[in-house]
Amino acid sequence: MRLVHERWNPWRDLARLQHDVQRLARHNRPADAEYPPFNVYQNAEEVVLTSVAPGLDPAGIDLEVGADAVTVRGQRPVWSPEPGQSETVEFSRTLKLPFPVDSQSAEAGYERGVLTIRLRRPVSQQSRKVPVAAG
C-alpha cells in the first residue's frame, strides 16, 4: 500500500462543500420554482415583465402566453467546482398576470442577460381619453 500526501487546499474543500450543498438544495425543492425572478410593471396599456437571468440561450427559452398567465421554461447553467464540467438544470415558472392580455401582441427579448416580456391589454379593456365638447 502506498500513501500519497496531498497538500491541503481549503479553497478546493470549500468549493466541493458549496457544490454538495447546491446539489442537495436542488433535490429537496421543486425544480427552481422561483427561477427566474421577475419584476412586474404595469400601466394602462400593458404589463412588462423583466428578469435578470444570465447565461441563458435565447433560442432555448420557451415562452407561453395565455389570457391571464405567462409560463417561461428553459435550461440554465449551474456552477460546477470541477474545471471543464458544466451542468444545466431545467426550470419552469408560471406567473399570474394582473389583468387579461392579448397573447397575439406579446413581445419578448433577451439582451445582456435580461429577459424582457411585453404584454398588451386587449383593446376592449384599455382605457381611453374622451374629449369633452364645450357648449
Rank of each mutant, 00 (worst) to 15 (best):
S103Q: 14
L95G: 01
V89P: 00
S124L: 14
G109Y: 01
S127E: 11
K96L: 14
S105Q: 14
A108N: 10
V114K: 10
P122E: 08
T116M: 02
S80Q: 12
D102R: 07
S103H: 02
K96D: 10
E82V: 15
E90T: 13
E90A: 15
T116F: 00
E87R: 12
A108P: 02
K96Q: 13
E111G: 01
Q126P: 07
Q125E: 15
Q85W: 08
G84H: 05
L97A: 09
R93A: 01
Y110A: 04
P83D: 06
E111D: 13
R93I: 07
S103R: 15
S124K: 14
E87K: 06
P122K: 12
L97D: 04
S92D: 04
K96Y: 03
R121H: 14
V114P: 00
E111P: 00
G109K: 11
T116N: 05
L97V: 12
S127T: 14
K96H: 08
P81Q: 05
I117W: 08
A108I: 00
S80E: 11
I117V: 15
L95M: 11
I117D: 01
S127I: 09
V123M: 11
E111W: 03
P122R: 10
T94G: 02
E107M: 08
R112S: 14
Q104S: 15
D102H: 09
R93V: 05
R121G: 06
R112C: 04
R120C: 03
L97Y: 06
V114D: 03
L95Y: 04
A106N: 10
T116L: 00
A108T: 11
E82D: 09
R93Q: 10
T88A: 08
G109Q: 09
E111M: 05
P122M: 11
L119I: 09
S103W: 05
S105E: 13
S124Y: 07
S80W: 02
T94C: 06
V101M: 01
R112F: 11
S105N: 07
F99I: 06
P122Q: 12
D102E: 14
L95D: 03
